[in-house]
Each structure stands twice: as C-alpha cells, then as structure tokens.
C-alpha cells in the first residue's frame, strides 16, 4: 500500500507537468495518465468509466513502479522528459497501444517520454509555441498555417506513402447523395477548424463549386475528432461530414459497425499526411534522437507491432513541399 501511495504522488507530479491550460476539475481522476488529463472536458455518464479511469490510474502506477525498477540507466530516468503532443490525427482512443508506444519511445530514447493530449489542434499548437511541449503530431493545415514556427520532424507513411485523403461521408441510409453540393441546408460535421481533411478540404471544394461555405449548410458542428465525426454522421446528428481517410479506414477495421453506418460519397485529392513537428528551439540532439527512433521504428518487431496498431507503415524524413496543395488552398481562402 505504501508503494501505491508513493506512485500516486509520482503520478500527480507528472500530471502537473503536463497540465497546462486545463480548466476542468475532473482532471484529478485521470491524474495517473498525463496524456489523458483533458478527459474531464468529456464528461462521461456512469460509474463504469470512473472505475475504468481508476483502474488505469492503478495500471499506470504499477507501470511507473516497474519502469522505475527496471530502468537500466537510473540517470536517464532523471533527465527532463520529452513531451510529445498528440491530437486527433488518428483514432486516439487506443489507450493501451499509446501507452506501449510511449514506453517504446522511452526505451529507445533512454529518457522519459510524456504524451500530452489535446483535442483541438489550436491548443496543441499553442502548447508548442509556448514551448510547453517539444514535439507534436498535428494536422498539416496548422503546420502550413504556422509555417516557420515549427520544424518538420517526420511524416508517417500510410499504405507506404506519406499521403492521405479527405472522405466525404453521409449516413448509410442516404443513398442519393453523390456530391457535397447536394448537402445544401443540412447539418454538417467538421472535425476541427484547423483540420485539413475535416474542415479545409470540404470548404475548399464548396468554394470551388461556387458556394459560400459559411452559408451553405444550415448548421455546422465541430466534433474535435475525426472519429467523432464518423459517429455524428452514423447517428444521424449530421447529414454529412468530412473525415481523414486514415481514421475512417482504421475504424473500418477496428470498429466496422461504426463505419458501416456511414457511406463514403467522395474522396478528395491526396494531401500530405499529418506530420510530426518540433518546436523551434528544440535541442538538435533530442530532435535527431526522436527522428532516428521514428524513422527506424519499422526496423524492429515492437515498432512494427505498434505501427500496425496505428495503422501506419513507418516514418520518412519528408519535405514541406508535400503540403503545397494545402498551402494553395489556404491562400485561395485568404485571397477572398
């Protein structure tokens, strides 16, 4: 029991480190999982989840203890942790896989790693610019938008290539819609105002078709997650939505009943995959270390297994030119 108490204190300290800008009192519940400390915002009904959260606190505490005991280099454990911001660029409720990934990174980097989750890209970008986090996996839209304020670290490979698309989805019951232009006057679900595939791309299409995206839909809602956009469309809350092809395809394997309730109407042109970026003032050693770890992830069995969980094939160094299409889209809107 004494150990348990200690671990709680430890967890709490970790949580404080990552708890910048959280405004919800429920954070304490998930204190053991730093990358979950914003769950308070998503109040979930019922006791099961509370219990589950408590369980995770436990698991996290035990893992931390184990890790502390097994750490080969005590000195490494006392180094400042590498803080990585995660957003909704992937179906981010695979908590166990994420935890394994974090431990994998810690092992490879030989220093503590913290995942800091944020629902909105804007928040993650803010943390990055405020240097509260060192790295972030964000959408290419903010990367392009805040060009020069962050460095490109690595680009994930999805189906072997650093590209993905925006899917226009409608409820499965809707058999007639063939184009986004047919959804005039409906409720439309966006993921995030800084999302490319979940916001910029469909608006660009409308603009190209000669509509005013501001007036086109009767109502638009932000779900702050591609996965939830799928849910919103599947439940009929929205009559249309735009999602990342990577998220939709991943969901279609892990939660086929959810994607089965939706129908993909159109797919957009290919965009560069959401990149891993680093804050500008990041130390070269850490930057190189993490870049190397990511680029070589596909070379060991653990890494490949984790990549399979993330439905990715690996990472490449990448080139900002991959995102030129987004850049032109942004400019097209700014020009108006």
């Amino acid at each position: 029991m004494k150990n348990h108490e200690n671990s709680r204190t430890e967890s709490a300290r970790w949580a404080w480190n990552g708890a910048v800008g959280t405004e919800n009192g429920c954070r304490a519940r998930s204190a053991g999982l730093p990358w979950r400390n914003k769950t308070g915002k998503k109040l979930i009904w019922g006791y099961e989840l509370v219990t589950a959260t408590r369980m995770k606190t436990w698991i996290a505490a035990v893992l931390v203890l184990l890790f502390g005991a097994l750490a080969p280099d005590a000195g490494a454990a006392h180094q400042a942790p590498v803080r990585i911001g995660l957003t909704a660029t992937f179906p981010n409720d695979q908590y166990r896989a994420l935890e394994e990934w974090r431990r994998y990174l810690e092992r490879r980097l030989e220093r503590p790693v913290e995942f800091v989750r944020r629902d909105s890209y804007a928040e993650a970008m803010d943390l990055l610019r405020l240097q509260k986090i060192d790295f972030a996996w964000v959408c290419e839209y903010p990367f392009v938008f805040f060009k020069g304020q962050m460095k490109l670290l690595a680009i994930p490979l999805y189906r072997g290539r650093p590209y993905y698309q925006s899917y226009l989805i409608v409820p499965a019951g809707d058999r007639s819609t063939r184009s986004i232009t047919q959804l005039e006057g409906t409720v439309f679900a966006y993921a995030d105002p800084y999302s490319n595939t979940g916001y910029l791309s469909p608006r660009f299409d409308l603009q190209q078709a000669g509509y005013d995206p501001q007036q086109f839909f009767r109502k638009t809602i932000f779900t702050w997650s591609h996965r939830k956009t799928v849910e919103a469309v599947a439940s009929g809350l929205a009559q249309g939505g735009a999602v990342s092809s990577h998220v939709w395809e991943t969901l279609s394997t892990v939660k086929p009943e959810l994607t089965a309730a939706t129908r993909v109407v159109t797919t957009s042109a290919e965009f560069g995959f959401p990149p891993f970026v680093a804050r500008t003032g990041i130390g070269a050693a850490v930057f190189d270390d993490l870049q190397r770890v990511l680029l070589t992830m596909s070379e060991d069995e653990d890494g490949r297994r984790l990549l399979r969980h993330l439905n990715l094939d690996g990472f490449m160094r990448g080139d900002p030119a991959l995102y030129d299409r987004v850049d032109s889209m942004i400019r097209s809107f700014s020009a108006q």
Binding site: L43, I44, G46, F222, K228, S235, L237
Partner: peptide, 11 residues
Amino acid sequence: EVWRAFEIIRA
C-alpha cells in the same frame, strides 16, 4: 458545442 451536448445527453 453541439457535439459535446450530444455526447452528454447520449450518455
């Protein structure tokens, strides 16, 4: 926040 409200009442 329509989606948040939806999540809350759906719970």
